[in-house]
Design a protein around this nucleic acid. Structure first.
Length: 901
RNA sequence: GCCGGGAUGGCGGAAUAGGUAGACGCAACGGACUUAAAAUCCGUUGAGCUUAAUGCUCGUGCGGGUUCGAGUCCCGCUCUCGGUACCA
């Protein structure tokens, strides 16, 4: 046997696990045992397959799963595919291949790649969001949303039927309304409802585009067609009803603080006031939201978002040309561009004036793109003295600035946002901010100029997509425009078979959108109920829908009667939800907020038992790699990018002085998250073939801490591969192929090393510090390199500790050591205190905080002994000689610091 | 712009609660084994200084601060990465 035969061994154990169903979690587990639900954020089955960034999280959850099994837990560790989505549909549009075909091929390929890493998933629970018996339940949940409303009295969602008797008393004239009028009222309460919202509309593609698909110039990535912001009637989900709970319940979950912070900021609760301004020549009042009503005396001008609905009526004739031009430019920019393009604020005067109700003075009304239509009321009162953006704007356009808060002493900045007493503010003068706010709100309410209110940054969730490859809505529309839900018993609403997946293109930006499903056969589109004709909803759900609840389906994926059996749900989700959820921090707000929202709706309606879905969240870092963008700002394939000499970029990207080209066009190099967005993926297959998957697993974990981002570097892989081969040589005879484990008693030194290692590795497993766990195992085996054989008493615990990390080799060695059973459920080694006590301890001795010596003392030495020993040390003595000892600090087991001077 | 991370030798990283900065690995260099190469094993490796020691000085992105003691805490920056609501 020349070397570690990883191909044979890995193949052997992967087949063993598969045919023995080693990792099958039974439908009915022994519920007296503790459970552990370990979940990965499931992948999108992309055409290029897995890249080495995916397994980073999957290997980590696999290690945790294997470790927990050895610790005696019932482990639920499933995997699936988030398989609806844009790329399969675009491929279908371009090549005429049905998205289901592409998707299934991609899933097969990724499944092969996942299995080749030896991940211990219960594959019998595999699912894809595109499975009909999965999306049936996605539609079922949508019906629950449609048929529910948010009862602010009970602070929970309730079935819509409970609302109707209430409306009879609370809604004036309810009794006189006809059916469609009543439906209109109910729509204002439903958690799923229709509304007009602005979107990136590309008429030539006949579709709405993601911001990502829009170039810097406001054109489409595909085809380079113009893109317009225009309002479109869309399905929305009333996530804003849950704003307070989404924020408050973060206190109860074990999540990374930064993610909680991002969610809190995303919900963006802020207390403040609505203030209504009279506008010259306008019936309506102009309403703004402000978090600082106390600064009203300093409001010297107003700014509307260019899209604000009152811009037309406020704008005076001589300013109209400038205003229209400005609005047109703003419409072509994304929100991010509007805020980041430059620090210089732009805007135009409308010619209109409003009356500041506090000062009774006329203040000019401007429009500027630093005010966004989607936040607050889309209009602000500008207080340059107290807001940096307003100050900048006022400086550019020479608008008056009044301070309303006394700046702290020595303050030399521009806008002052700190604490202080009110000044220049009439009846508020002298009050601190909080008091001034309350006083102003009371004044506004008394005088009919506004009221105190809470505002959220969170917007309702836009839930329609003009696409084919998504869940169809279980919704029908009558010829009179009425909306009707499909009966739950008629689910699923299957995607109709189609050959052409293109939306209908047009040159007219104002033509109504014709989504792909408008091409579906009439037999699908048209439904007749009680003699009335209905057309099915032609939009589909966003990809988020399927990922909002998949963790629940894994619990009971075969159930045909319900999405998951309540008893099973209670066991696996209780008491705090999924025990460990690992995925990238890029999902910090969207996916994780949407899933929490759905979960809370299901909780309110009594379908799940926990308030939160994911008790513990962990973000793995990114594997990063170089990426390239063309002049339009669109990422191009890194693998097809070359340098000026025609060499592949992948080989020369870290050398200085390279210029890069893609299909002859110059591109810019950047560095970032590996993945489909930056088109810079590296496949794990190569590593698997060359070194084996135990090496891949070990390398990905050894690269650094799990939550840190780090660059992929093929060169470093040999390090952990050498470790594995060294282990193999230590355990298996080079010529004899015999196991080299002896039944001799381990030496005391070996036992101490073993137990120290058990403590280190167990600790590292608990805190998911796998890189240092591997380092401990490397150090351990280094002590045995010179030996002919390893005593069984230390060899077996070592193999067990290796098992979660490099399971194939560990299983093989375990079997060769005489164990017929898999080690997947063998108990994890336990350290014994008697091997952890040391006779002597090493202490560092510092003088004035600088290390001057190390001393060895008996582990039971007293502080006095230790200080005496420190001071008598030759080098220490040199530094304290002739000086007064001012302080003596002794940190047990660590150091002594003698302060002199 | 806004919200959230990160920055430690030539490289990836370690330092778990404020207590020896650089564990472990890569690369590099030197040596052993070998006809040779691969593989393997042993050793050196943050920078600098000197009287060469059980020595000294500097050193964790930059500038300040707190502390007996700071990679770690505080204040102010720089660069960089993630998100920014239709990529997921």
């Amino acid at each position: 046997m020349a070397d570690y035969p990883f191909q044979n061994i890995e193949q052997k154990w992967q087949s063993f696990w598969e045919s023995n169903k080693t990792f099958r979690t039974p439908e009915n587990v022994d519920t007296s045992k503790p459970k552990y639900y370990v979940l990965d954020m499931f992948p999108y089955p992309s055409g290029i397959g897995l890249h080495v960034g995916h397994p980073l999280g999957y290997i980590a959850t696999d290690i945790v799963s294997r470790y927990k099994r050895m610790m005696g837990f019932n482990v639920l560790h499933p995997m699936g595919f988030d398989a609806f989505g844009l790329p399969a549909e675009q491929f279908a549009v371009e090549h005429g291949v049905h998205p289901r075909v592409t998707t299934e091929n991609n899933i097969d390929n990724m499944l092969r790649q996942l299995k080749a890493i030896g991940l211990s998933y219960d594959w019998d629970r595999k699912l894809a969001t595109t499975d009909v018996d999965y999306y049936k339940w996605t539609q079922w949940i949508f019906l629950k949303l449609f048929n529910s409303w948010y009862d602010t009295d009970q602070d929970m969602a309730r079935p819509i039927e409970e609302l109707i008797p209430r409306l009879e008393t609370t809604h004036e004239g309810w009794a006189d309304l006809n059916a469609s009028q009543r439906e209109e009222v109910l729509a204002g309460y439903r958690l799923a409802f229709l509304a007009e919202v602005p979107v990136n509309w590309c008429p030539q593609l006949g579709t709405v585009l993601a911001n990502e698909e829009v170039t810097n110039e406001g054109r489409s990535e595909r085809g380079n067609y113009p893109v317009f912001k225009r309002p479109l009637k869309q399905w929305m989900l009333r996530i804003t009803s849950y704003a307070d709970r989404l924020e408050a319940d973060l206190d109860g979950v074990n999540w990374p603080e930064p993610v909680k912070m991002m969610q809190r900021n995303w919900v963006g609760r802020s207390e403040g006031a609505h203030v209504d301004f009279d506008v010259d020549g306008l019936e309506e009042k102009l309403r703004v939201f402000t978090t600082r009503p106390d600064t009203l005396f300093g409001a010297t001008y107003m700014v509307l978002a260019p899209e604000h609905e009152l811009v037309d009526s406020i704008t005076q004739a001589q300013f109209r040309t400038a205003v229209d031009a400005y609005r047109k430019v703003a419409a072509g920019k994304t929100d991010i561009d509007r805020m980041s393009e430059s620090k210089v604020k732009t805007g135009v005067f409308t010619g209109g004036y409003a009356l500041n109700p506090a000062t009774n003075t006329q203040i000019p009304i401007w429009i500027a793109d630093y005010v966004l239509a989607g936040y607050g009321t889309g209009a602000i009162m500008a207080v340059p003295g107290g807001d940096e953006r307003d100050w900048d704007f006022a400086e550019v356009y020479d608008l008056p600035i009044i301070r309303t808060v006394q700046p702290a002493e020595g303050f030399e900045g521009k806008a002052y946002t700190g604490d202080g007493a009110a000044i220049n503010s009439g009846f508020l003068d002298g009050l601190e901010i909080n008091e001034a706010k309350a006083t102003m709100i009371a004044w506004l309410q008394e005088n009919g100029h506004g009221e105190g209110t809470v505002n959220y940054k969170l917007r309702d969730w836009l839930f329609s997509r003009q696409r084919y490859w998504g869940e169809p809505f279980p919704i029908l529309r009558g010829e009179d425009g009425s909306v009707r839900a499909v009966d739950a018993k008629d689910l699923p609403v299957m995607l109709p078979p189609m050959e052409d997946f293109r939306p209908t293109a047009t040159d007219d930006p104002n033509a109504p959108p014709r989504p792909p499903l408008s091409r579906a056969p009439e037999s699908w589109r048209i439904v007749e109920i009680d003699g009335k004709r209905f057309e099915r909803e032609l939009n589909t759900m966003p990809q988020w829908a399927g990922s909002c609840w998949y963790y629940l389906r894994f619990i009971d994926n075969q159930n045909e009667a319900t999405f998951a059996d309540p008893e099973k749900e209670k066991y696996w989700m209780g008491p705090l939800g999924v025990d460990l959820y690992i995925g990238g921090v890029e999902h910090a707000v969207l996916h994780l907020l949407y899933a929490r929202f759905w979960h809370k709706v299901l909780f309110d309606l009594g379908y799940v038992t926990t308030v939160e879905p994911f008790g513990r969240l962990f973000n793995q870092g990114y594997i990063q790699a170089y990426a390239y963008r063309d002049e339009r700002g669109i990422a191009v394939e890194a693998t097809e990018t070359v340098d000026q000499d025609g060499r592949p970029a992948m080989e020369v990207q870290d050398q200085p002085g390279r210029k890069f080209f893609y299909k002859g066009e110059p591109v810019t190099q950047e560095y970032g998250k590996m993945g489909k967005s930056l088109k810079n993926a590296v496949s794990p297959d190569e590593v698997n073939e060359r070194y084996g998957c135990d090496t891949l697993r070990l390398y990905e974990m050894y690269m650094g801490p799990l939550d840190a981002s780090k660059p992929w570097n093929t060169r470093d892989i040999v390090g952990v591969n050498r470790f594995l081969r060294r282990v193999w040589r230590n355990f298996v005879g080079e010529d004899s192929d015999a196991i080299l484990v002896s039944d001799e008693r381990p030496t005391d030194t070996q036992m101490r090393l073993l137990h120290k290692t058990i403590v280190r590795v167990t600790n590292d497993m608990e805190r998911m510090s796998f890189n240092t766990a591997i380092a401990a195992l490397i150090e351990f085996i280094a002590e045995f390199v010179a030996l002919e054989s390893i005593p069984r008493g230390v060899a077996e615990p070592f193999v067990l500790m290796l098992a979660p990390l490099a399971p194939h080799m560990a299983e093989e060695l375990w079997q060769r050591m005489g164990h017929p059973e898999t080690l997947a459920y063998a108990p994890w080694p336990i350290s014994e205190d008697k091997w952890l006590v040391e006779d002597t301890i090493k202490l560092v001795v510092q003088v004035n905080g600088k290390v001057r010596s190390t001393i060895h003392v008996a582990s039971d030495a007293t502080k006095d002994d230790i200080l005496a020993a420190s001071k008598s040390d030759e080098n220490v003595a040199r530094f304290i000689e002739g000086q007064t000892i001012r302080r003596e600090i002794y940190v047990p087991n660590r150091l002594v610091n003698i302060v002199v001077g």
